[in-house]
Design a binder for these strands. Structure first.
Lengths: 147, 147
DNA sequence: TGAATTTAGATGCATTTGCATATAAATATG
DNA sequence: CATATTTATATGCAAATGCATCTAAATTCA
């Protein structure tokens, strides 16, 4: 949406800046992830959740962690599976459920991509804002989102 | 990407909050725009630029204003045209260029959608943050984006 | 227990994206 | 002036998205 400008009540001059920041960070982050074979932040997030989990996650658990829609999760896992980054197995306890686990390649990719991602964020946040500014930014953003 | 969490250096705890805020505002805004027949923020932005412009804009001018890609602009205009919100005419001065103008319906849609959009932003920003907080948020976000 | 309901995922279909390339008009060059 | 190049926009095609719906397994409950 580019400028994301609205009618012009200046009540919300922060919104275009938010859009801009989001897009710029996201662009950098996705470029970094692409260099490691991932196609989107969503893919990375799924890999990260899988790595963090103590036990294999079902698709619906993964869905809950990532805030993706049901069908998005299903297809995201399709793609990760096709590239050999995860595996899907029928849950022993519930025949409807599929458990998703990272493969070796998936773990390696997550690790490498994670480092690149963290670098981008450092670049965009830590190197540009002081600690108290970061905290303030976060607090303000949390008030804008949520509900 | 849901949580948008990264490896865990806390240098960038602001990023998940940024993602969250962006997604929440955008979701509300698009819901409001849909009620007025628009499918995305991008569509609204294009209508707004066209309304603001003193003269008809070519596709490439519109592209520059909105930060869309060339093919995105072309197809966005396709869709707006199909719904009777804009018209495309060959530029008199340059036979390659198409000038895009709002139709009557396009103007009405822009106006109504704009009000709804502004309401959402007021809701998300002005009603939640004080004036100096808004200004601060904006300043911080501008430093994160850009470059 | 057997039929109805709910839950977990998958998928058909239409739309949208992205990339690369095509078309066509304008401009530059020899 | 004729050809090559650049500029403005459109488009074919493959992948991705969204919606609604489907299948199959589990659970409810009469």
């Amino acid at each position: 949406m580019g400028n994301a400008q609205v009618a012009d009540g200046d009540s919300a001059r922060a919104w275009p800046a938010l859009v801009r920041a989001y897009q710029d960070v996201r662009r950098d982050a996705e470029a970094a992830l692409r260099r490691h074979g991932l196609k989107s932040l969503e893919e990375y997030d799924a890999l990260l959740e899988l790595r963090r989990a103590v036990r294999p996650l079902s698709l619906s658990e993964l869905e809950a962690e990532t805030l993706l829609r049901q069908y998005q999760t299903s297809r995201l896992v399709d793609r990760l599976e096709a590239r050999g980054l995860v595996e899907r197995t029928v849950a022993p306890a519930d025949g409807r459920s599929r458990l998703v686990t990272l493969t070796k390649a998936g773990r390696l990719t997550q690790k490498a991509a994670g480092r690149a991602y963290a670098e981008v964020l450092d670049n965009r946040f830590a190197e540009r804002l002081a600690g108290d500014e970061l905290a303030m930014l976060r607090r303000l953003l949390l008030r804008v989102g949520a509900d």
